[in-house]
Structure formats: structure tokens, C-alpha cells
Design a protein around this nucleic acid. Sequence first.
DNA 1: GGTGAAACTTCTAATAA
DNA 2: TTATTAGAAGTTTCACC
Lengths: 160, 160
Amino acid sequence: MAKFKLDDTDHSILDMLIDNTRTPFTDIAKKLDISAGTVHVRVKKMEEAGIITGSSLKLDYKKLGYSFIAYVGIFLNKTSQTQFVLERINEIPSVTVAHVTTGKFNIFCKIRAKNTSHAKDIIYKIDDIDGVTRTETMISLEESINDKKRLMHSIFNALD
Amino acid sequence: MAKFKLDDTDHSILDMLIDNTRTPFTDIAKKLDISAGTVHVRVKKMEEAGIITGSSLKLDYKKLGYSFIAYVGIFLNKTSQTQFVLERINEIPSVTVAHVTTGKFNIFCKIRAKNTSHAKDIIYKIDDIDGVTRTETMISLEESINDKKRLMHSIFNALD
DNA sequence: GGTGAAACTTCTAATAA
DNA sequence: TTATTAGAAGTTTCACC
């Protein structure tokens, strides 16, 4: 795949879409003083290049009854079991993301649950996976999400 | 705020939009055998109720030159400094999310960086914040993201 | 609650520059 | 690469169930 180079126009388009994926292309066009057709072509190119891989809704999980977040560090018997355990973990819907890591833990994941009791069930489920020797849980008391926009600006402007 | 109850139609709408926020309402309407106007009203209600809080693009950060992910556990002098440190951390664009946690660490955050050298700079920046005594870094060797859809199904069907 | 249709807006692809 | 254009498609409102 050829290296894809984004210019300022692309940056501005991403900048507007990252906050609201349904921003009309005509609005973007007006703000950038280009035509809507151009916006369309640019977005399509970024999709084709795999820069934009999709879009998703932001949901308020608390309002859906899922107010509990924790991180679970996992210790394995042997690192050769990593892929197997990773696959088992990903079968649990409450595990939102898992990482194979260096350092203290072999695998490290984030879980979303209804409450402590529900979280306990999930952690037990993880503990039960073949090859898992021990887990260590960190409960989130407060989550603070950094705006994606800020990271994007730093990427495009080489700050940070 | 009155308790907002989602029904099967709402679930199905979310189900389609969560994968592609630009799915035309007419498509959703066709699939669910309702009118596009109804889809529109339902989505608006979920937005007003704060269930849907926004939408965002999924970007391939690797393609943007940010292929490094790590989690950083932070130890504080005194827990009373937590809010101060949290604010400082959130000023760093590369920090994508931060949590106040129970357990081993006082604060726990995820960072995205270009490479190890860039990550080092970020971690030094965190180390330098007043009140931070020590940090512990876990480098992600492999990230595996669980489909949001799966969590949603589990929320709506009480599996898990 | 929902519908269907009208009015309006936006998308998209083709053409031309 | 970008702009223009025009027909197709989508959104949104509203009178009426």
C-alpha cells in the first residue's frame, strides 16, 4: 500500500467528523470553502486508504445500567498460552479491550459491568480460563476520557 | 430525569448505528418494517435522553504513525493530590484515558505514542507532575478490541 | 405511540475544467 | 485534483391515525 499523505484539508475534515460523524458534507464544504463533492472524494479516499476504519456511536453505559469499570491484570502459567487465553477472554462481552503486555502482567484487559457483584462473576470467569494462574483487579473510581480531537491535533501538528 | 426504557426497536436501531453511524434511516426503517420518520424520532429521543451521547470516527492510528500503546500506573504522594494530577495528565494529548483506581495504583492511564522514544518523553512528563512519586509502565504488544455490538447484546439480553 | 407524503436537504457520480 | 451539476437518496416535519 502506498503511503497516504494527509493534507490540511483532510485534517480539517477529520476534525469535524470526529466529533459528529453525521456532519453534512455540505457544512464541511462551506466551512472549508470547497465543494461538497470534494469533501466526498476526500472522505472516500481516507476510507479506502484505511485511515478511517469506521464510525461508532458514543453511548452512556451508566444510563444503560453498566456503571462499573475495572482493569484486570492476568498472570499466565506459560506465555505460550497467551493466544488461547486472549481468545477466551474476548468471548466475554464485558471485556471491552484486551492487551498482551510486557511488564507485570501477561494480559491486561478492561471490563464493563453492572456492579461489583456482576464484576466478580466476570473476574471469576477469567480466573477459570485454562492457563490463568492469578488475576489482579483495579477498580475505576472515576474515568476521564481525553478528547480524540486533542490527540488528532497533536498528531497533525507534532506537539506533545 | 425520568428513567428511559429502551424497547426492541430501539435496540435494533442502536445495533445498526453502532457499526455505521451513517446507516441511512431509510435502510433501518426498511429492515425493521417501520417508517423512516419513526427511526428519526427514536434516535432523537435516545439523544435527548443522553443514551446516545455522540458519534465518532474509528481511525487507524498505526497508519497515522502512532503504533505505540502503553498503560501507565501512577503512584501519588498523597491521594489528596489526585484531582490535580488527573488534570495535569489530561492536558497531555497522548493520554487517551485516565482512571482514578483502587488497588495498586492511584491513577491509571492509557497512552498512544509514535514509538518507544516518544513514549519515554510522555512518561517523563507524567513523572514530572507534582505529587507523582513513581510510575509503572506496561507496554502493549498486541491490542484486541472487543466489538461494542457484543457488549450491547449482552446489555440488552442479559447474557454474560 | 405510529404513518405516509410533502418539502427540504444532502449525497453521489458524471462531466468538464 | 477540484468544481459544477443534476438526478437520486435521505431527512424531517406534520396532519392524521
